[in-house]
Design a protein around this nucleic acid. Structure first.
Lengths: 149, 149
DNA sequence: CTTGACTCTGTACAAGACTACAGGGTTTAT
DNA sequence: ATAAACCCTGTAGTCTTGTACAGAGTCAAG
């Protein structure tokens, strides 16, 4: 028989049992077959599905987005346009986030070079810089993180 | 009198009243004076302190870290070394995060160009790529985000 | 004196992605 | 027959940074 218990599946994918049940509850995995005693019986396809989820997470998709990708994947009439749109939206979002972080990095790098690291905090240029009122309230991508698509 | 009610302070800093109370609970603001009726009376210094918090958040510090920066700021014997160390650790962390995101961006950009956006999902190169098992399980900075300092 | 604006405390909720029980039933090996 | 290892459901907790009440008290203006 080529079915897996939840524990076997978990080991095969390097995930926790609880995580798999969580994905099932969240609609990422279809409800599996059950044994007479109520134990889950996963087909070996489930390994691939969990790999899909993991890969998608690695490139930055949220579980909500992955649910939609999987639904497209499962739908014989699924539109490839939508997959591409999701990918491009995610790409744009990640690029925004990189820009935000780059700005932070520049400020921090500047602060780090300003400060000798010796002496009392009272005259520390880092602390002094932070005491200044924010010049402009720039929007961070925390604020604009939502997907507009 | 140069004291502020919580509402006045909130307006002066562009924060919500609840946020200020939250910061007080979290130990970022010292417990303010109170009126006879129990209303908070903030000194005008509080405006600067809240600006400090906001600036520090803008460059990526967490509230935990900001609490420590403020404690150093408040301590007449505070060591500037520590401020610099926190800054450099944050800088390194942000650089790691940028690298992670850059890897994701590269993969997504590649996927987006691969896919024509036309046709059924079944033959979509994005979906096919996601179906592949993860090559190496690379650590993302989600995992290594904690500060080692 | 009443209305409206303000403040107080304490608690609960939000998102996202899990993780951890508690209290049972099942299977397998000895 | 019994212990170990596995599985079930359902609920609750974790982390972070706030937000949102509910129910009550206070203050200023008309």
């Amino acid at each position: 028989m080529n079915t897996l218990s939840i524990g076997q599946l978990a080991r095969a994918c390097g995930l926790g049992i609880e995580t798999i049940r969580f994905y099932e509850r969240e609609g990422l995995l279809p409800p599996p077959q059950r044994t007479a005693a109520g134990y889950r019986k996963f087909s070996t396809d489930s390994v691939q599905r969990l790999n899909f989820i993991r890969r998608a997470k690695e490139v930055g998709f949220t579980l909500d987005e992955i649910r939609e990708l999987l639904a497209l994947h499962d739908d014989p009439h699924g539109e490839r346009t939508r997959v591409k749109a999701l990918t491009e939206a995610k790409l744009a979002q990640i690029e925004r986030k990189i820009l935000d972080l780059s700005r932070m990095r520049d400020v921090l790098a500047h602060l780090a070079t300003e400060c000798s690291g010796v002496g009392p905090v009272s005259s520390c240029p880092i602390i002094q810089a932070l005491e200044q009122p924010p010049l402009t309230h720039q929007q961070t991508s925390q604020d604009s993180d939502e997907q507009h698509d």
